[in-house]
């Protein structure tokens, strides 16, 4: 082997070494890149999943508040009056969430628990923000005095967007009374009476005193529950109460 050849080889190896070093560098860079993007994607997906999970499961823990007043003859009751499972709802005819839960409760009581559970509706009109809620309480009570509380209750929730904050709410309620076949003279007298208004304000005060701050609020056998996130959730909670009480 001549000296020239040796020099040639050493140049070649140097070139190769450089190429290899470059390759290693590129590889390192790629790994770094992959780690950076991997971490970014993981954090984003993880955080998003965490938020969705928290929203979905945020409503399962039960909350304990002070005891609620016993159910009396003056309460509006549907379902099985003798049941040991008693659901009490504090609700506001003008609250959109209450209208959404109205659908859920109606389905539960019509299809699942009509003969198994006692359901009580109590007023909690949020008079600070809902300007026609007081009159709606009067309308339901006026219909109730003619034996049609629940029919008016249904009508009020089903048509909430029509009468809420409508300056003609009073006339609309009288139309509902006509549709329900009520004695209009008596209904109008009760609708305009001081008692209806006072009932609403007293119900509001009583609910605040109990520590309630939102509608709808549900109690099962005197214990406040977090609002179920779906019809199925609500059905499961009631079924659990039935099992616990039998």
């Amino acid at each position: 082997m001549t000296e020239e050849n040796i020099a040639d080889i050493s140049v070649k190896t140097k070139k190769e070494e450089k190429r290899e070093a470059d390759r290693a560098k590129a590889q390192k860079r790629m790994i770094k890149q992959a780690i950076l993007w991997g971490i970014t994607v993981l954090i984003i997906i993880g955080a998003a999943a965490g938020v969705v999970w928290a929203v979905k499961n945020g409503g399962t823990a039960s909350v304990t508040t002070g005891s609620i007043p016993e159910v009396t003859a003056s309460d509006w009751v549907r379902g099985n009056e003798n049941s040991t499972v008693v659901i009490v709802e504090y609700s506001d005819f003008q609250c959109p969430a209450c209208a959404a839960y109205y659908e859920v409760v109606k389905k539960l009581m019509d299809e699942d628990f009509g003969d198994k559970v006692k359901f009580v509706y109590r007023h909690f009109p949020l008079i600070e923000t809902h300007l026609t809620a007081t009159l709606a309480v009067s309308a339901s009570e006026a219909a109730g005095s003619q034996g049609k509380f629940w029919q008016m209750h249904d009508k009020l929730f089903e048509n909430q967007t029509t009468w809420a904050n409508n300056p003609k709410a009073r006339e609309i309620f009288i139309d509902y009374a006509k549709e329900l076949g009520l004695n209009i003279e008596e209904f109008t007298k009760n609708l305009d009476s001081k008692e209806g208004k006072e009932k609403a304000i007293n119900a509001y005060k009583a609910s605040i005193k109990m520590g309630l701050n939102s509608t709808p609020s549900f109690f099962i056998n005197g214990k406040k529950i977090q609002n179920p996130q779906s019809y199925e959730d609500f059905r499961n909670i009631i079924n659990q109460s039935i099992t616990d009480n039998s």
């Binding site: 938020v51 929203v55 945020g58 969430a97 939102s214 609020s217 609002n227 996130q229 959730d233």
Partner: peptide, 24 residues
């Protein structure tokens, strides 16, 4: 996260309750 929360509330959360002073 804020947008995910609002989206999740819309699709998986139940109806948002109304509060005494802050409204619905």
């Amino acid at each position: 996260l804020d947008s995910v929360y609002l989206t999740a509330k819309r699709f998986v959360g139940g109806p948002i309750p109304c509060f005494v002073f802050t409204g619905c």
